[in-house]
């Protein structure tokens, strides 16, 4: 009950912020919420199941290009494009998982990284269709869903909040479900789970697909809402970004990705206004985090018993 109340309170706070935030932070928060959905998907794989992937940029860009290309080349409207983009993320994750999940640990990191790089190079290779390095702006006509103009700040924030709310409550339901327990069991001891009759490959593949669904949704909404689809989103930094968000906010905590995304976004934003070496500042912050709160902020609070009920 406490956990549900906290989640609803966070959503209420985000709604309230819609009415009071100045334009700059309002736009930032809409972006952060979509990125937090991406990180939430990553958290399902890494935080709850222990799958350390470095290929999530592939799923993000599958969603983004899946939606964007359909709007650009086939004139689809936003709603079906967003749906297909989301499913493209899940499909790409299924395909990657079928091959990559035959490995584990460091090998999984490397194999997923290679898949993501292959995806990035494919986008560049078919530059005539994908826009290559430069990408392409999403046509204005394709940014209207159910009468809402997603290019406008107000509807964009509310749609981002709606997506985030759906993802967050879905995440909460997932970790409280039986499948959620199996995910944790798999992370804690795969061999023991197998001895209880669970097929680790099937469970991990299911997790990967769910994770890809979240990443695909984030990619599709990000591209359509902010009006740009580009191969940059398929690069390695976009595979590392959700890992940083999750590590900072708290791996294996439902609200960790949001907290991590907010803090990391503003840390980079602040640092970049003072120095061009903003990544060094980010690296320093992560170093402090790893030394003093290795489980992330919410993870450490939970571990120290201050919020042991956090799901």
């Amino acid at each position: 009950m406490r956990a549900l109340s906290l989640h609803l309170a966070v959503l209420a706070l985000l709604l309230a912020l819609h009415f009071v935030l100045p334009a700059y932070h309002h736009a930032n928060l809409a972006r952060i919420m979509v990125l937090a959905v991406f990180a939430m998907g990553y958290n399902i794989a890494f935080g709850y199941t222990g799958l350390l992937s470095l290929g999530h940029a592939l799923f993000l860009s599958a969603g983004m290009f899946g939606a964007g290309l359909l709007i650009q080349h086939f004139g689809l409207t936003a709603a079906p494009a967003l749906l297909i983009g989301t499913l493209a993320g899940a499909a790409m994750a299924a395909l990657t998982g079928l091959l990559a999940l035959r490995t584990a640990g460091v090998s999984l990191m490397i194999v997923t990284l290679m898949f993501a790089q292959a995806g990035y190079l494919t986008l560049l290779y078919f530059g005539a269709v994908t826009g290559g390095d430069e990408g392409f702006p999403v046509p204005a006509a394709g940014r209207v869903a159910f009468g809402l103009n997603l290019a406008a700040e107000g509807p964009r924030y509310l749609v981002a909040l709606g997506l985030f709310a759906l993802a967050l409550m879905g995440n909460l339901a997932l970790v409280r479900s039986r499948f959620g327990r199996v995910m944790v069991a798999m992370r804690e001891n795969e061999e023991r789970s197998r001895m209880l009759g669970y097929n680790p490959f099937a469970v991990k593949l299911g997790v990967m697909v769910l994770s890809g669904l979240y990443a695909g949704a984030a990619g599709a909404f990000y591209g359509v809402m902010f009006g740009y689809v580009g191969a940059t989103f398929a690069t390695i930094p976009y595979s590392i970004l959700p890992l940083l968000y999750v590590l900072l906010g708290g791996a294996g905590v439902t609200l960790g990705p949001l907290l991590g995304a907010v803090l990391m976004f503003y840390l980079i934003d602040l640092a970049s206004s003072h120095t061009t070496a903003q990544l060094a500042v980010t690296g320093g912050a992560l170093l402090v985090l790893v030394l003093f709160a290795p489980k992330g902020i919410l993870g450490s609070l939970r571990e120290r018993g201050l919020a042991s009920w956090l799901p």
Partner: peptide
């Protein structure tokens, strides 16, 4: 939850 995991199969 540990017991539940045992039951699931």
């Amino acid at each position: 939850e540990n017991i539940e995991i045992g039951l699931m199969t």
